[in-house]
Design a protein around this nucleic acid. Structure first.
Lengths: 162, 162
DNA sequence: GAAAAACCCTAGCAGAATGCTAAGGAACTT
DNA sequence: AAGTTCCTTAGCATTCTGCTAGGGTTTTTC
């Protein structure tokens, strides 16, 4: 899982598609204009989304793209996974626990990143296109409990993910 | 907040420092060798960590770096925030809700990314250096509840965060 | 059946970021 | 004073991102 801007563009386009299409195909050119994304770039993204089974295409005049599933069945995590290249195993191997054993502490951090990936996926799996369209996204930030003492007061409020 | 490999290197180095130092300064050259990171690159990272108030430095022979706070007071989120440049506001402004109003649906996704950033920060704030050293990282993946129907069975298990 | 509208595919490219090297300096200890 | 370590800046090769260019293929409509 790679959290890049590419995934953000794909989600923006899918939200546009979901909120524009009432069962009719939506032309990429329309999405490109509304979202201010280059048409050719969009075409590349939708090619991946189609291979991932998230959208269906209709060719010819009056054609365009359709959601393959209902809006409440299309999860944000699926979009990002479909669009972003899976992995670039620079140092550690992705899934293998024996992959990185150069040093103990490196393996320790490996566990941390893996769990972080789980957390991110967990959250993005809980949000569907229907949620984003209906603005049902904010307001459920509650603390993830963890087997350690609670952290002190936050000295540096973080910048947003963008 | 930017989740890059730079932050991973910094966390690796800080874990090494935490587990090596018993109140004594640790030379960067030692960390560089153990973690197989270029010394000069490490120096750049630790300059940022020092400016962020996460480590103290001792110059001269026998010198090196010390944690500024106890291991259970140093959170992973602080390390990443200190090392990664804060933001590259390509399209949307980071905190301002009025920043991106080119289109309705773009603002909708903006909320999504902001909440995702909160979730990531929340998790990384809950993990301290002490947790990583003691391998108290895995095993607490529970579902984040969300005001939507539960997603169907997962068709595509995700690759890890690395 | 031709024209037009849309999807489809590949190659490549400018700019930025990443990870790193190089070089020199400043401060501290012995 | 000499050595060890931190500290800073400049620059560079590689990779990724976002995009352009240019060509298809399929389908509908006239």
């Amino acid at each position: 899982m790679k959290l890049s801007t590419k995934g953000r563009y794909a989600v923006m386009a899918m939200v546009d598609l979901a909120s524009t299409s009432k069962g009719n195909p939506v032309a990429l050119a329309d999405i490109a204009e509304r979202q201010e994304i280059s048409l050719s770039y969009l075409e590349q993204l939708f090619a991946k989304l189609r291979r991932g089974g998230l959208v269906r295409s209709v060719r010819g005049p009056g054609g365009g793209y359709l959601l393959a599933h209902a809006v409440d069945q299309t999860r944000v995590s699926d979009i990002i996974v479909a669009v972003d290249e899976p992995i670039r195993a620079t140092r550690c191997a992705p899934g293998s626990p024996t992959g990185c054993r150069v040093n103990k502490s490196r393996c320790l951090t490996h566990d941390l990143w893996e769990e972080l990936g789980n957390q991110i996926h967990l959250y993005l799996s809980s949000v569907t296109l229907a949620d984003v369209c209906a603005r049902r996204v904010l307001g459920t930030s509650h603390v993830i409990d963890h087997p350690t003492e609670p952290a002190p007061a936050d000295p540096s409020p973080m910048a947003a993910a963008e």
